[in-house]
Design a protein around this nucleic acid. Structure first.
Length: 109
DNA sequence: AATTTGACAGCGA
DNA sequence: GTCGCTGCCAAAT
C-alpha cells in the first residue's frame, strides 16, 4: 500500500528531485525526463531547474543527463566537461564526447 | 499577486 | 542532420 511510486505531495519538487537524484547509484545516469516522471511531473525542465537554484553538494547532478545521454551544456559548475570528468571517475563510459552510453549506464527506476 | 525564468522534451520544416 | 518553436509547471524575484 505504500504508494512509494508517488512522492509525498508534502514535499516540494526540490525535495523530491533531490531525493531521486541522490538515489542514482554510482556509475549510472538518469535522464531528466525520467526523474521528472518520478517526482510526478512530466516537466524535465524543473529537474535541472531545482538543482540549478540550489546547487546541493549532496546531489550528484552530474549523473543527470538528457534523454539522448548528452550532458547539460549549461552545466553550472564548470561546463559539461566537469560533468563528464566526474562520470568518468565513476566508471561511466561515453558514446561520444558529450553523450553518455545510455545502453550501459542508464539508471532503471 | 504577477511576471520571468529554467541544467528539457517533442515535433515540424 | 540541424534549426526553431512549443509545451509544461513550479519557484524565484
Amino acid at each position: 500500500m505504500n504508494t512509494m511510486s508517488v512522492p509525498s505531495k508534502n514535499k516540494s519538487l526540490f525535495t523530491a528531485i533531490r531525493e531521486v537524484v541522490s538515489h542514482i547509484p554510482e556509475g549510472k545516469v538518469a535522464t531528466y525526463g525520467q526523474i521528472a516522471k518520478k517526482v510526478g511531473s512530466n516537466d524535465a525542465r524543473k529537474v535541472g531547474w531545482a538543482i540549478y537554484n540550489n546547487q546541493n553538494p549532496k546531489v550528484p547532478c552530474h549523473r543527470v543527463v538528457k534523454k539522448d545521454g548528452s550532458v547539460a551544456e549549461n552545466f553550472s559548475l564548470g561546463g559539461w566537461q566537469e560533468q563528464k570528468s566526474r562520470l568518468l571517475s565513476e566508471g561511466v563510459t561515453f558514446s561520444t564526447e558529450k553523450q553518455v552510453d545510455l545502453e550501459r549506464h542508464l539508471w532503471r527506476i
